[in-house]
Nucleic acid binder design. Structure first.
Lengths: 204, 204
DNA sequence: GCCCGGGTTGACTGACGAGTCAATCCGTGG
DNA sequence: CCACGGATTGACTCGTCAGTCAACCCGGGC
């Protein structure tokens, strides 16, 4: 049975080290040995747990994106106005960044926005999230909360794009950061995008 | 003087070939020899005109981004409402894509969104565009066209992010394309983002 | 005490591709 | 007709890693 199990989970250690290395040097510019060094393990051990360098990034991405998709699905099931749902989605993404900026940086920079290399392989998984947001908008359009002048598909892309660009701004130091900024960002994205989608907006 | 000038501009031919190759295979996955082959010139000639593989991409990016920044500056000088200015900016970007999808794909995928590799080097140039959009919003806020609840910097990022995400959707076949879609996209981005920014929105 | 097997090690290999360079071509001026 | 020099050629070099593998370590079962 479970022989040699009490040892710490080296696989996890390698994954965590990879996040730091990818965030610092980028996937393409780092060597597998950098990951091993950062993790404090031998080079070969990386290949004991992962089939290739790519698989390390794949694993990180799928782990995290799975959580996102799951979270959006749960949010969509709530019985609240679309605006609140979208606020919750924005909230989840922003909080993901707040909780682990390095991991989010890696996922956005190396996968989500790297549509030629990794994005291509995961395009379908990535668009799962887009489709879910689209679903939220569609329902809101059906029940009259949102106007139908803009297609749901388009609105979803605009919404997600706005958030991702803001995260990118943080990641590269173009936008002011801090607890306040994070909270404001959630409101602002929704304020900006939803107000444009809603059927009626009271004058301020 | 101008010896051997009548020959076609090989430099240009190489650049154009590079666009096709980068768009098809991606910058990292293509070889310099692929560019040379596509251009129908010898391998070494690429190095006669460019110092490195990177410099080819740099050149393509700077050429095009320069036009964008210039265009936004010109638009900003016009004496029209902010909404119209932003519509013109969206228009310019969408038309750039319509006019040369491959070049725009390369610029977005390999530079603008590749913040670790090339984006890093050009971060400043890239954000020139963001800053200009920010300027348009700031003026609109100053003269009361736009509300000040959302910072201009933030609005600029959201606006640009929304457009870029839509282009990305086209690039990877996630969003329906065609003349109609392009025209609608311009209106929709502005409709979506500006409506959320304006001080007063008439009921639909 | 001894064997078994999975965890762990790190030196080594093989492929690949950016960049070099000496040779060749060819238009122009004298 | 020749010499000059920039344009053009493509075979070759050289460094860099991703991935392999044979050996080693060590806990558990017998």
């Amino acid at each position: 049975m479970a022989a040699t199990k009490p040892t710490v989970d080296k696989r996890r250690i390698i994954l965590d080290a990879a996040v730091r290395v990818f965030a610092r040097q980028g996937f393409h510019t780092c060597r597998v040995s950098d990951i091993a060094d950062e993790a404090g393990v031998a080079y070969g051990l990386v290949y004991h747990y992962f089939g290739s360098k790519d698989e390390v990034l794949d694993t990180l991405f799928l782990e995290r994106w799975g959580l996102l998709v799951e979270a959006i699905a749960e949010i969509d099931r709530r019985d609240v106005p679309a605006r609140d749902k979208l606020h919750a989605v924005a909230s989840f993404i922003v909080d993901s960044y707040r909780h682990d900026p390095e991991l989010m940086k890696v996922i956005i920079v190396e996968v989500t926005r790297a549509a030629n290399s990794f994005g291509a392989a995961h395009l379908d998984t990535i668009s799962d999230a887009y489709r879910q947001i689209q679903g939220i908008v569609e329902k809101a359009q059906a029940n009259g909360e949102f106007r139908t002048t803009v297609t749901a598909q388009f609105a979803a892309m605009a919404f997600y794009g706005a958030i991702e660009q803001v995260l990118t701004g943080w990641i590269f130091g173009l936008l002011e950061q801090g607890e306040d900024s994070y909270e404001r960002a959630k409101d602002h994205v929704v304020e900006t995008v939803c107000r444009g989608l809603e059927t009626y907006t009271p004058a301020p």
